[in-house]
Amino acid sequence: MQPTGMLGEDGIHVDMNHLKKGEVNLGTSIMAINFKDGVILGADSRTTTGAYIANRVTDKLTQVSDTIWCCRSGSAADTQAVADIVQHHLSMYAVTNDEQPTTQTAAAIFQDLCYDNKDQLSAGIIIAGYDHRHGGQVYSLPLGGSLHKQSYAIGGSGSTYIYGYCDSYWKENMTEEGGIAFVKGALSEAIKWDGSSGGVIRMVVLTAKGAVRHLYLPDQAYEGPGKQPKAV
């Protein structure tokens, strides 16, 4: 195996083997958007170990506090560990400071972990949350550990195929139906073109009313949410 993390003679080194042999990768399509009443998070459900699909119904949308969620991409192990640590910090924050953490607080803790350990981690995370004071917010935290506040964010290997789609169809202040259609349309394209993305489309709609999960199945051409699970 090539030594990783070192510069080549030409001063350029692209680390293609950032995963260990057999490590589980979230070759992924994830996104989160702002809409009229809050935010919507969306993700595919494929987890791969090389060419093998280790899990076809993965849940890449992870809750870190009552009204703050994240979309995970990169190493499954790394992003699960980071999300667990953030969840712990936020629950401690709520009890020691007598108030619920804001999306900003969550984003700051995610960034602190991902930037300080950037050499060890392979994690691209999108953070989205809702609170009455700030409304819905979307933060993108890509590989290097920089933090970007955005109207919407896309991430993972599949996102490269949908930059054009999103740029064309994006509108600010969409309705919930419009937002769901946008996320579903974009992720369907990402799943179609990206070999490392697939399975079902999962969504979480975060508003003043709380978090509601959606599930869209490929054998129904991702049409309709089907039977709705109860609000989380």
Partner: peptide, 25 residues
């Protein structure tokens, strides 16, 4: 609203969705 120190970007130009106006903070 207080931005995260060092954050880049500012979100939707129309403002955040679902924000309750008139709250005292």
């Amino acid at each position: 609203e207080v931005p995260v120190d060092g954050q880049v970007g500012s979100g939707p130009s129309t403002g955040a969705g679902g924000k309750k106006e008139g709250g005292k903070h």
